[in-house]
Design a protein around this nucleic acid. Structure first.
Length: 444
DNA sequence: GAGGTCACG
DNA sequence: ACGTACGTGACCTCG
């Protein structure tokens, strides 16, 4: 097409000689047959210009603060390397899991039954090391070193390099049609995995700032959106009622599962039930839950059994999700977005069970993605209609981040909350928590 | 380029 | 008896 003038390209397309043009027609028919027309036309196609604007807008980071933090991390890393060398004796690369495995399990013999990865190396991942961290002072130092070097190489050193010299801002790429469930993904750089969980990580969040002193960042995130979607899909009476009441769902679950009043729910009980709730969304297995709770598989199985007695609708949903996928060969979301599951009837138990978890999880994760995508389209349109200067800059699965003129903050807070909570009625109230501040850490 | 690890929701 | 919680992206080592 390179040698054609614009009018000729149109002629070419009009004659249906253009392959892209023909494909558009053909694929739209297929989309229609699959019942995905609404998802395509009312969600994805409307989202394209929204994402384009967000990528174009970018987000400001305080590179000076990051560079200073980089020097602090360097000092921490150097200290750790000196201490590690004193304790370990040898000269090895602290970034090499292979060498660490040999030091910990061949040389120091910290675990005679050390697990190995599929390739035969010793496993040295965080959960493995945490189990043995009391056996030698070098183990917590490895974990510390790993944490520091991860943050430094992936974020602290890298983000300042990503500042576009033309705009002075960081521009991510959103992939709209990449994930299996309908979520977005973000890359080059990925701004959907900016640290927050640890104190060190929070220093990095703090470096994401509003465009200037006249602006603030506003973060709006759906609270427990996937559990609400599970309540909706399963129509479980108790779970829906708990959300309607505005209950703390993990606390509520603990009260039910352990059969006690709120006063008698310990932090451990609530935390265990929080893990069960997550597990439910993922397509729970007694083994997986037991591993994460650090309890025997049997005890985990009993916990799950009690859970299903308390939330029978959830159990029914899970069985039906699997059966539907077996019958149709796919799982679907509220907007009928499909994920084909080729292994759902496999004779290989491992891959079949994997597909069964996908059959349970995909409608949940995917419907949550549908909701926020529709909300993005609506918020973008309303900001434009009301001539507001606020810019949507990031989407992080259940959170939207905006760069807001200070004087618009109150208006936008209301607009965004309203759009996000009322975008679709799923029979379960949606709740959005909103924060405002000079940086992302404070706003979130 | 694969494998291991780990950052996020 | 299987091997095991869902979805991503990026960095590092090593052959």
């Amino acid at each position: 097409m390179g040698d054609l003038a614009p009018e000729e390209i149109c002629d070419y397309a009009a004659e249906d000689a253009d392959v892209t043009f023909q494909l558009d027609h053909l694929l739209r028919e297929k989309v229609k047959e699959a019942g995905c027309q609404y998802a395509l036309e009312q969600c994805e196609e409307l989202l394209v210009p929204v994402l384009l604007d967000m990528e174009h807008e970018g987000v400001r980071i305080n590179s000076g603060a990051l560079k200073e933090y980089g020097r602090e991390l360097d000092r921490e890393l150097l200290d750790l390397e000196i201490k590690i060398r004193e304790l370990g004796g040898g000269n090895f690369n602290p970034s090499s899991p292979k060498q660490w495995g040999e030091v910990l399990f061949d040389y120091l013999k910290l675990d005679p039954e050390a697990a190995r990865t599929t390739s035969g190396q010793y496993a040295t991942s965080e959960d493995v090391l945490q189990r043995i961290q009391d056996r030698h002072p070098i183990v917590p130092m490895i974990l510390d070193h790993r944490a520091c070097s991860k943050l430094k190489s992936t974020y602290v050193d890298k983000l300042p390099e990503c500042i576009d010299p033309n705009t002075g801002r960081v521009h991510t790429n959103f992939a709209q049609a990449l994930t299996e469930t309908g979520r977005l993904s973000s890359s080059d750089p990925n701004l959907q995995n900016v640290p927050i969980r640890t104190q060190r990580g929070q220093r990095i969040r703090e470096a994401f700032v509003a465009r200037d002193e006249n602006h603030v960042l506003l973060s709006a995130d759906y609270s427990q959106v996937e559990l609400r979607v599970m309540a909706s899909l399963s129509k479980d009476k108790g779970m829906i009622e708990a959300f309607k009441r505005g209950a703390d769902i993990h606390m509520e679950t603990a009260m039910r599962v352990y059969g006690v009043l709120e006063l008698f729910v310990t932090p451990e009980m609530r935390s265990a039930c929080k893990m069960v709730n997550f597990g439910i969304i993922y397509g729970i297995s007694a083994f997986g839950l037991g591993q994460r709770l650090g309890v025997p598989r049997k005890q985990a199985a009993e916990l799950i059994e009690t859970y299903f007695i308390q939330y029978p609708g959830v159990k029914k949903y899970m069985d039906k999700a699997i059966q539907d996928a077996r019958d149709t060969g796919f799982a679907e979301t509220l907007l009928h977005r499909r994920r084909y599951l080729r292994d759902i009837n496999s004779r290989n138990a491992t891959s079949r069970q994997g597909a069964e978890r996908n059959a349970i999880n995909t409608p949940v994760q995917g419907t949550a993605a549908d909701l926020i995508k529709l909300a993005m389209v609506r918020v973008h349109r309303e900001l434009r209609e009301r001539r507001l200067k606020t810019k949507m800059v990031l989407q992080i699965h259940d959170e939207l981040l905006f760069d807001v003129p200070r004087e618009e903050a109150d208006t936008v807070r209301t607009l965004v909350r309203n759009a996000m909570t009322t975008v679709l009625d799923i029979g379960v109230p949606l709740d959005v928590s909103i924060g405002v501040g000079d940086n992302w850490l404070v706003a979130h």
